[in-house]
Design a protein around this nucleic acid. Structure first.
Lengths: 140, 140
DNA sequence: CTGGCTGCAAATCTTTTGCATCCTG
DNA sequence: CAGGATGCAAAAGATTTGCAGCCAG
């Protein structure tokens, strides 16, 4: 995510705290988790600043925003294209750093310019399986 | 989606209206779009009924719920596994009815039971491209 | 008849916005 | 010192919930 190398970005202490928290973070945190973490250092931190900063970073291509959990955004400090594996029960998200061949025929493409392709693997993690969670309850 | 064949489901007029609207519908409508459509027939229809019915149908495996557009649910009357192509600008969603080989190594699986795999193609549709929308503005 | 369903309103949760003040470059 | 960033609170948008009354099976 090229921390601090984002020339043109005004580096405030709050932004540095967010960048520090995200750097190397493999948890794919939600906005709330980021807010809670940086609030420890900056008790006056507001959601507005968290969302503003994340949106700025996303537009610069420094991070990516995941639409994998219903109803909330998750953020990934790794902006390069890759895929994800999510536990349907506890919502933990892992990276799948592999390329899959995903060619579309002209008919399937429907004239679209394809800009991104994302594969989501949904399942039950070992911990949740051991905890006896009924997969069908969440998997439908 | 086996309309009406869902034995054990109490068939109220409201549910029939929702089933009728979804049957054969390829628009991947949001809850709001479903609400608006069935409200024409049932002016007293409430969001609670729409959400209740959709959740009931999903749990029965009669429809599937898409997590492809940020912040809202979309519903697909086709519950069989398939993939999707979405326009990043106007959010229209198309089906991709093809299987792709998406094998995970043991290491990549991390002990998960994989229950579903979903490929999302994101791009710009011909109409939005013609309208001159700047892809980078939305694509980041 | 009765348990599940409906409809309304209020509540919840996440994200966005307006605006006065602040501070980095 | 100017323009962008912050923080607060209020607003917005989507979904969920509580509950009294209703109706399909």
């Amino acid at each position: 995510m090229r921390k601090y190398k984002d020339i043109g970005l005004k580096l405030t202490p709050q932004r540095i705290a967010i960048l520090d928290y995200l750097d190397g973070n493999r948890q794919h945190p939600t906005a709330e988790e980021i807010y809670r973490a940086v609030s420890k250092r900056f008790p006056t931190m507001s959601f507005a600043t968290v969302y503003n900063t994340l949106e700025t970073l996303r537009r610069r291509g420094s991070i990516s925003e995941l639409t994998i959990e219903q109803g909330k955004k998750r953020f990934d400090p790794d902006p390069s294209p890759h895929h994800h594996l999510m536990c349907m029960v506890c919502k933990q998200v892992h990276d799948i750093g592999r390329d899959f061949p995903l060619p579309l025929t002209e008919g399937e493409r429907r004239g679209f310019d394809i800009l991104a392709t994302h594969v989501e693997f949904h399942g039950i993690c070992p911990e949740c399986r051991a905890a006896g969670t009924n997969a069908r309850a969440v998997a439908g």
